[in-house]
Amino acid sequence: MIEVKSLSKRFGSKLAVDDVSFKVGRGEVLGFLGPNGAGKSTTMRMVTGFLPPSAGSVTIDGIDVIAQPIAAKKRIGYLPESAPLYADMSVSSFLAFIAELRGMSGRENAAAVDRALDICFLDPVRNQSIDTLSKGYRHRTCLAQSILHDPDVLILDEPTDGLDPNQKQEVRNLIRRMGEEKAIIFSTHILEEVEAACTRAIIIDQGKVVADGSPAELKAKSKLAGVITVRINGLAGSGIRAALAALAGVSEVKESATGELSFYGQVVPRKADTGLSEAIFNLCKDKNLVLEELRVEEGRLDDVFREITIADTKLAKSA
Protein backbone atom coordinates (compact mmCIF):
# COMPACT_ATOMS: atom_id res chain seq x y z
CA MET A 1 0.00 0.00 0.00
CA ILE A 2 2.68 2.47 1.02
CA GLU A 3 6.02 2.21 -0.65
CA VAL A 4 8.83 4.60 0.18
CA LYS A 5 12.01 4.40 -1.89
CA SER A 6 15.29 6.10 -0.91
CA LEU A 7 13.53 9.17 0.35
CA SER A 8 15.72 12.13 1.29
CA LYS A 9 15.01 15.63 2.46
CA ARG A 10 17.49 18.44 2.76
CA PHE A 11 16.78 21.70 4.57
CA GLY A 12 19.59 24.03 3.55
CA SER A 13 22.77 22.21 4.46
CA LYS A 14 21.07 19.88 6.92
CA LEU A 15 20.06 16.44 5.74
CA ALA A 16 16.89 15.78 7.73
CA VAL A 17 15.96 12.48 6.09
CA ASP A 18 18.67 10.37 4.52
CA ASP A 19 17.83 7.60 2.07
CA VAL A 20 14.86 6.11 3.92
CA SER A 21 13.08 3.14 2.35
CA PHE A 22 10.27 0.96 3.66
CA LYS A 23 6.99 -0.69 2.70
CA VAL A 24 3.76 -0.99 4.59
CA GLY A 25 1.12 -3.44 3.42
CA ARG A 26 -2.59 -3.72 4.14
CA GLY A 27 -3.17 -5.07 7.63
CA GLU A 28 0.12 -3.70 8.88
CA VAL A 29 0.59 -1.11 11.60
CA LEU A 30 4.04 0.43 11.39
CA GLY A 31 5.40 2.19 14.47
CA PHE A 32 7.81 5.02 13.81
CA LEU A 33 10.31 5.48 16.60
CA GLY A 34 13.16 7.87 17.08
CA PRO A 35 14.49 10.65 19.26
CA ASN A 36 13.18 14.18 18.77
CA GLY A 37 14.42 15.69 15.55
CA ALA A 38 15.27 12.30 14.05
CA GLY A 39 13.22 12.99 10.91
CA LYS A 40 10.00 11.16 11.77
CA SER A 41 7.65 14.05 11.11
CA THR A 42 9.56 15.11 8.00
CA THR A 43 9.27 11.60 6.59
CA MET A 44 5.55 11.50 7.32
CA ARG A 45 5.03 14.91 5.76
CA MET A 46 6.68 13.66 2.60
CA VAL A 47 4.55 10.52 2.55
CA THR A 48 1.38 12.64 2.76
CA GLY A 49 2.58 14.89 -0.04
CA PHE A 50 2.82 17.99 2.15
CA LEU A 51 6.58 18.34 1.77
CA PRO A 52 8.20 17.70 -1.60
CA PRO A 53 11.13 15.29 -1.14
CA SER A 54 14.65 16.27 -2.23
CA ALA A 55 15.14 12.79 -3.67
CA GLY A 56 13.37 9.45 -3.77
CA SER A 57 9.76 8.50 -4.30
CA VAL A 58 6.58 7.68 -2.40
CA THR A 59 3.76 5.63 -3.87
CA ILE A 60 0.38 4.97 -2.30
CA ASP A 61 -1.40 2.00 -3.79
CA GLY A 62 0.90 2.34 -6.80
CA ILE A 63 0.09 6.04 -7.22
CA ASP A 64 3.04 8.39 -7.12
CA VAL A 65 2.46 11.12 -4.53
CA ILE A 66 4.49 13.69 -6.45
CA ALA A 67 3.19 12.94 -9.94
CA GLN A 68 -0.49 12.50 -8.99
CA PRO A 69 -0.88 14.32 -5.68
CA ILE A 70 -4.68 14.63 -5.74
CA ALA A 71 -5.33 10.97 -6.45
CA ALA A 72 -2.82 9.92 -3.79
CA LYS A 73 -4.15 12.34 -1.16
CA LYS A 74 -7.66 10.94 -1.62
CA ARG A 75 -6.42 7.62 -0.24
CA ILE A 76 -4.62 9.06 2.78
CA GLY A 77 -5.92 10.18 6.15
CA TYR A 78 -3.41 12.34 8.00
CA LEU A 79 -3.14 13.54 11.58
CA PRO A 80 -0.43 16.23 11.69
CA GLU A 81 1.85 16.46 14.70
CA SER A 82 0.31 19.37 16.58
CA ALA A 83 -3.28 18.47 15.63
CA PRO A 84 -4.02 21.80 13.90
CA LEU A 85 -7.68 22.89 13.67
CA TYR A 86 -9.68 25.89 12.56
CA ALA A 87 -10.35 27.10 16.09
CA ASP A 88 -13.35 29.32 15.38
CA MET A 89 -15.48 26.47 13.99
CA SER A 90 -17.57 23.99 15.93
CA VAL A 91 -16.47 20.36 15.97
CA SER A 92 -19.22 19.14 13.66
CA SER A 93 -18.96 22.04 11.20
CA PHE A 94 -15.19 21.56 11.03
CA LEU A 95 -15.65 17.87 10.26
CA ALA A 96 -18.36 18.70 7.71
CA PHE A 97 -15.95 21.10 6.01
CA ILE A 98 -13.22 18.47 5.79
CA ALA A 99 -15.73 15.89 4.55
CA GLU A 100 -16.79 18.34 1.84
CA LEU A 101 -13.18 18.81 0.76
CA ARG A 102 -12.99 15.02 0.69
CA GLY A 103 -15.80 15.10 -1.85
CA MET A 104 -18.74 14.12 0.34
CA SER A 105 -21.93 16.15 0.37
CA GLY A 106 -25.46 15.98 1.70
CA ARG A 107 -26.49 12.81 3.50
CA GLU A 108 -23.18 11.06 2.85
CA ASN A 109 -21.38 13.97 4.50
CA ALA A 110 -23.62 13.94 7.57
CA ALA A 111 -23.25 10.17 7.92
CA ALA A 112 -19.46 10.35 7.69
CA VAL A 113 -19.34 13.11 10.32
CA ASP A 114 -21.61 11.13 12.66
CA ARG A 115 -19.53 8.01 12.25
CA ALA A 116 -16.26 9.86 12.97
CA LEU A 117 -17.80 11.63 15.99
CA ASP A 118 -18.91 8.25 17.25
CA ILE A 119 -15.59 6.46 16.74
CA CYS A 120 -13.61 9.23 18.44
CA PHE A 121 -16.09 9.72 21.33
CA LEU A 122 -16.76 13.30 20.35
CA ASP A 123 -20.52 13.27 20.49
CA PRO A 124 -20.79 15.29 23.76
CA VAL A 125 -18.91 18.22 22.23
CA ARG A 126 -20.17 18.09 18.65
CA ASN A 127 -21.65 21.59 18.73
CA GLN A 128 -18.97 23.17 20.85
CA SER A 129 -16.55 25.67 19.38
CA ILE A 130 -13.10 24.13 18.94
CA ASP A 131 -11.27 26.90 20.81
CA THR A 132 -13.18 26.03 24.00
CA LEU A 133 -12.14 22.36 23.92
CA SER A 134 -9.55 20.68 26.11
CA LYS A 135 -6.40 19.30 24.53
CA GLY A 136 -7.66 15.72 24.51
CA TYR A 137 -10.82 16.65 22.64
CA ARG A 138 -8.90 18.77 20.15
CA HIS A 139 -6.57 15.91 19.48
CA ARG A 140 -9.45 13.53 18.91
CA THR A 141 -11.19 16.04 16.66
CA CYS A 142 -8.13 16.07 14.46
CA LEU A 143 -8.01 12.28 14.58
CA ALA A 144 -11.70 12.18 13.57
CA GLN A 145 -10.81 14.40 10.62
CA SER A 146 -8.27 11.85 9.40
CA ILE A 147 -10.70 8.90 9.35
CA LEU A 148 -13.74 10.73 7.90
CA HIS A 149 -13.38 9.21 4.46
CA ASP A 150 -12.43 5.76 5.76
CA PRO A 151 -9.04 5.87 4.00
CA ASP A 152 -6.94 2.83 3.15
CA VAL A 153 -3.83 4.57 4.40
CA LEU A 154 -3.53 6.36 7.72
CA ILE A 155 -0.56 8.49 8.70
CA LEU A 156 -0.74 9.50 12.35
CA ASP A 157 1.92 11.76 13.81
CA GLU A 158 1.93 11.17 17.58
CA PRO A 159 -1.74 10.24 17.84
CA THR A 160 -1.67 9.75 21.62
CA ASP A 161 0.20 12.94 22.47
CA GLY A 162 -1.60 14.95 25.15
CA LEU A 163 -4.19 12.30 25.97
CA ASP A 164 -4.82 10.88 29.41
CA PRO A 165 -4.05 7.19 30.06
CA ASN A 166 -7.61 6.04 29.34
CA GLN A 167 -7.80 7.96 26.10
CA LYS A 168 -4.37 6.66 25.13
CA GLN A 169 -5.64 3.14 25.59
CA GLU A 170 -8.73 3.88 23.51
CA VAL A 171 -6.71 5.37 20.67
CA ARG A 172 -4.31 2.42 20.74
CA ASN A 173 -7.21 0.00 20.52
CA LEU A 174 -8.66 2.04 17.69
CA ILE A 175 -5.39 1.94 15.78
CA ARG A 176 -5.05 -1.80 16.26
CA ARG A 177 -8.62 -2.39 15.15
CA MET A 178 -8.35 -0.20 12.07
CA GLY A 179 -4.95 -1.70 11.30
CA GLU A 180 -6.57 -4.99 10.44
CA GLU A 181 -7.78 -3.68 7.10
CA LYS A 182 -5.70 -0.56 6.51
CA ALA A 183 -2.06 0.35 6.22
CA ILE A 184 -1.13 2.56 9.14
CA ILE A 185 2.01 4.46 10.03
CA PHE A 186 2.16 6.15 13.39
CA SER A 187 4.95 7.83 15.27
CA THR A 188 5.40 7.86 19.00
CA HIS A 189 7.87 8.31 21.83
CA ILE A 190 6.12 5.80 23.99
CA LEU A 191 7.68 2.40 23.49
CA GLU A 192 4.98 0.37 25.17
CA GLU A 193 2.62 1.76 22.56
CA VAL A 194 4.64 0.10 19.84
CA GLU A 195 4.33 -3.25 21.58
CA ALA A 196 0.63 -2.69 22.16
CA ALA A 197 -0.42 -1.63 18.68
CA CYS A 198 2.23 -2.29 16.03
CA THR A 199 2.91 -5.25 13.85
CA ARG A 200 6.22 -3.73 12.83
CA ALA A 201 8.48 -0.95 14.02
CA ILE A 202 11.14 1.22 12.46
CA ILE A 203 13.66 3.19 14.47
CA ILE A 204 14.91 6.34 12.80
CA ASP A 205 17.90 8.26 14.04
CA GLN A 206 19.45 11.30 12.39
CA GLY A 207 17.41 10.79 9.28
CA LYS A 208 18.40 7.14 8.77
CA VAL A 209 16.56 3.89 9.39
CA VAL A 210 18.65 2.16 12.05
CA ALA A 211 16.35 -0.75 12.83
CA ASP A 212 13.36 -2.38 11.14
CA GLY A 213 11.42 -5.39 12.36
CA SER A 214 8.55 -6.68 14.43
CA PRO A 215 8.54 -5.57 18.08
CA ALA A 216 9.70 -9.07 19.06
CA GLU A 217 12.58 -9.01 16.58
CA LEU A 218 13.67 -5.62 17.82
CA LYS A 219 13.51 -6.72 21.40
CA ALA A 220 15.73 -9.68 20.57
CA LYS A 221 18.48 -7.19 19.75
CA SER A 222 18.55 -6.12 23.36
CA LYS A 223 21.54 -7.19 25.44
CA LEU A 224 19.04 -8.55 27.89
CA ALA A 225 17.36 -10.83 25.37
CA GLY A 226 17.92 -14.53 26.11
CA VAL A 227 19.19 -13.88 29.62
CA ILE A 228 17.62 -16.29 32.12
CA THR A 229 16.44 -15.02 35.46
CA VAL A 230 16.30 -17.70 38.13
CA ARG A 231 15.37 -18.01 41.79
CA ILE A 232 16.43 -21.27 43.34
CA ASN A 233 16.13 -22.43 46.93
CA GLY A 234 17.53 -25.41 48.84
CA LEU A 235 21.30 -24.97 48.87
CA ALA A 236 23.77 -22.30 49.90
CA GLY A 237 23.70 -19.45 47.36
CA SER A 238 27.36 -19.79 46.47
CA GLY A 239 26.91 -23.49 45.80
CA ILE A 240 24.03 -22.89 43.42
CA ARG A 241 26.00 -20.17 41.72
CA ALA A 242 28.94 -22.50 41.14
CA ALA A 243 26.65 -25.22 39.80
CA LEU A 244 25.01 -22.78 37.36
CA ALA A 245 28.36 -21.48 36.18
CA ALA A 246 29.47 -25.03 35.48
CA LEU A 247 26.63 -25.66 33.01
CA ALA A 248 27.57 -25.84 29.35
CA GLY A 249 26.91 -22.70 27.32
CA VAL A 250 26.94 -20.26 30.23
CA SER A 251 29.04 -17.18 29.74
CA GLU A 252 28.32 -15.40 32.99
CA VAL A 253 26.29 -15.72 36.17
CA LYS A 254 25.20 -12.50 37.83
CA GLU A 255 23.80 -12.68 41.30
CA SER A 256 21.34 -10.17 42.63
CA ALA A 257 20.74 -11.71 46.03
CA THR A 258 22.20 -14.80 47.63
CA GLY A 259 20.88 -16.10 50.92
CA GLU A 260 21.93 -18.95 53.12
CA LEU A 261 19.75 -21.36 51.23
CA SER A 262 18.82 -19.45 48.11
CA PHE A 263 20.09 -17.85 44.95
CA TYR A 264 18.52 -15.12 42.87
CA GLY A 265 20.23 -13.84 39.77
CA GLN A 266 20.68 -14.00 36.05
CA VAL A 267 22.39 -16.50 33.83
CA VAL A 268 23.79 -15.05 30.64
CA PRO A 269 24.11 -17.63 27.85
CA ARG A 270 26.86 -17.54 25.26
CA LYS A 271 24.27 -17.75 22.53
CA ALA A 272 20.53 -17.30 22.75
CA ASP A 273 18.32 -20.39 22.40
CA THR A 274 20.80 -23.08 23.44
CA GLY A 275 18.39 -24.93 25.65
CA LEU A 276 19.97 -23.48 28.72
CA SER A 277 16.67 -23.14 30.55
CA GLU A 278 16.14 -26.86 30.22
CA ALA A 279 19.63 -27.52 31.58
CA ILE A 280 18.87 -25.34 34.59
CA PHE A 281 15.62 -27.18 35.16
CA ASN A 282 17.37 -30.55 35.01
CA LEU A 283 20.07 -29.31 37.36
CA CYS A 284 17.44 -28.45 39.95
CA LYS A 285 15.71 -31.77 39.47
CA ASP A 286 18.89 -33.77 39.89
CA LYS A 287 19.99 -31.93 43.01
CA ASN A 288 16.52 -31.71 44.54
CA LEU A 289 16.47 -27.94 44.49
CA VAL A 290 13.31 -25.83 44.52
CA LEU A 291 13.01 -23.87 41.32
CA GLU A 292 10.89 -20.88 42.31
CA GLU A 293 11.34 -18.79 39.21
CA LEU A 294 12.72 -19.40 35.75
CA ARG A 295 12.21 -16.77 33.11
CA VAL A 296 13.83 -16.21 29.72
CA GLU A 297 13.97 -12.44 29.15
CA GLU A 298 12.54 -11.18 25.88
CA GLY A 299 14.57 -8.03 26.00
CA ARG A 300 13.22 -4.56 26.37
CA LEU A 301 12.44 -2.18 23.56
CA ASP A 302 13.67 0.87 25.42
CA ASP A 303 17.06 -0.81 25.90
CA VAL A 304 17.31 -1.43 22.18
CA PHE A 305 16.14 2.10 21.46
CA ARG A 306 18.71 3.59 23.80
CA GLU A 307 21.56 1.41 22.61
CA ILE A 308 20.94 2.14 18.95
CA THR A 309 20.24 5.83 19.15
CA ILE A 310 22.85 6.73 21.77
CA ALA A 311 25.57 4.79 19.99
CA ASP A 312 24.81 6.74 16.84
CA THR A 313 24.88 10.06 18.62
CA LYS A 314 28.27 9.25 20.13
CA LEU A 315 29.61 8.13 16.77
CA ALA A 316 28.48 11.34 15.14
CA LYS A 317 30.10 13.40 17.88
CA SER A 318 33.44 11.64 17.63
CA ALA A 319 33.45 11.83 13.84
Binding site: T48, I76, Y78, P80, Y86, I98, L101
Partner: peptide, 14 residues
Protein backbone atom coordinates in the same frame (compact mmCIF):
# COMPACT_ATOMS: atom_id res chain seq x y z
CA UNK B 1 0.77 30.16 12.37
CA UNK B 2 -1.83 27.61 13.46
CA UNK B 3 -0.45 24.80 11.29
CA UNK B 4 -3.76 24.29 9.50
CA UNK B 5 -1.86 24.72 6.25
CA UNK B 6 -0.78 21.11 6.77
CA UNK B 7 -4.42 20.02 6.84
CA UNK B 8 -5.47 22.11 3.89
CA UNK B 9 -2.63 21.03 1.63
CA UNK B 10 -2.97 17.33 2.42
CA UNK B 11 -6.59 17.39 1.30
CA UNK B 12 -7.26 16.25 -2.27
CA UNK B 13 -7.40 19.89 -3.35
CA UNK B 14 -5.08 21.70 -5.73
Amino acid sequence: RTGTIELLLTMPVA
